[in-house]
Computed example of a mutant assay.
Amino acid sequence: MNAVTNPAKLHDCRDAFVATLERLGAENPRIVAVCNDSVGSSKLGGFKAKFPERLVNVGIAEQNMVGVGAGLANGGLLPFVCGASCFLTGRSLEQIKADIAYSNANVKLVGISAGMAYGELGPTHHSTEDFAWTRVIPNLAVIAPCDSVETAAAVEWAAAHEGPVFLRLSRVGVPDLLPAGHRFELGRANVLRDGDAVTLIANGTLTHRMLKAADLLAAEGIEARVLNMATVRPLDVAAIVAAAEETGAILTAEEHSVYGGLGSAIAEVVVDRAPVPMKILGVPGIFVPTGSAEFLLDEFGMSPAGVAEAAKALIARKRRG
């Protein structure tokens, strides 16, 4: 599969989320939205205008918000529980574990402005631990779409899926990479570019940077495979093993700590099923300082040029090994 890119046009994935939610809401009266004083940042204004009795704003009370979502699901409704990912996951992790996942409640958690999207608001608002917190919880699907097309497809899938979902969305603009009409499949990675020298794996805001890095590598005669790994739980184990066996090296990048996130999840598969040289790019286990998401990603070595250099170092390791 070749990526479809128009790098000049960037999309806020929240727009695709709310457009899909409003359309589904018109078709299904069971769909409700729950938020934590975040109608604006979750872009739920249109949903509220169309379905005023189907939006519950609990105020700044994330634990209550998740509990309300569980109660609504138990009453037969289909709640999308929306809030800043740093607060949705950090403040209400126990409720996510016990009320949602343990109870297998049909609740869709939507972490808005994930990663470093709140850049200028600093360490309290960065959400660089949410993969680590959520991916270890049984029953909970964890998804980070790479563009607006995949966001819309993932929302449709989540609404049809019976069970808990955590959907991780950024507010940072990204180009569309997947073709119109793309169908989301849980646990299925997308090969956006094929190659045999190294595999680059990412999701969310990092996927398009991996494609740009692959272009830089191709200019030097190095063909890199690029995988969009939108599902963090469950992982596409077959795609990871194939990448390890066919390219001999794996480089991951994520808008998250290098501990416990996408790279760690992939490393668990690699070490058990197909050991090869591997490198994880991300936040190096620190509290992320203030700065725009784009600036911070570059500072942490995840510019396209930085990814390309890391890939070349990894290929050198592979050759020495």
Rank of each mutant, 00 (worst) to 15 (best):
Y118A: 10
H182D: 13
A213Y: 02
G163P: 04
R233M: 09
A141P: 03
C146D: 06
A61Q: 04
G69N: 07
M278T: 09
A154Q: 01
G285E: 11
K43G: 11
V191M: 15
F287W: 14
A8R: 14
A26Q: 05
R168T: 13
T252A: 07
G163W: 00
V226I: 07
M210D: 12
G67R: 03
N190K: 13
R171A: 14
A152S: 11
Q63C: 00
C13W: 00
V136S: 12
G173E: 04
I201H: 01
A197N: 10
L217C: 05
A144E: 09
Y102H: 10
K48L: 15
L72G: 01
T124K: 01
P234V: 08
V283K: 12
T20R: 00
I286K: 07
A311P: 08
A305D: 10
R317C: 12
V258N: 05
L24P: 02
A305R: 05
G261W: 06
R171Y: 03
D15V: 15
A141W: 02
S170V: 09
V226R: 06
M65R: 07
S92G: 01
C13D: 09
M229H: 08
Y259N: 14
T252E: 09
L186V: 12
D15I: 14
M65I: 01
S103G: 03
K9C: 00
N104I: 07
A152Y: 05
L297D: 03
V307F: 01
A253C: 14
P123W: 10
D176P: 03
L200G: 12
V270C: 02
D130S: 08
A98R: 10
A70H: 00
M210C: 15
G285Y: 00
E246W: 11
L235G: 02
V136F: 05
V269F: 08
S103L: 12
G285R: 02
A313N: 05
V110T: 05
E27P: 09
L216W: 06
T124H: 00
V39E: 07
D236P: 05
A267L: 08
D99S: 08
A265C: 09
V307A: 13
R54A: 12
P304S: 07
F80K: 10
I250W: 06
N28R: 07
A274C: 12
R317T: 13
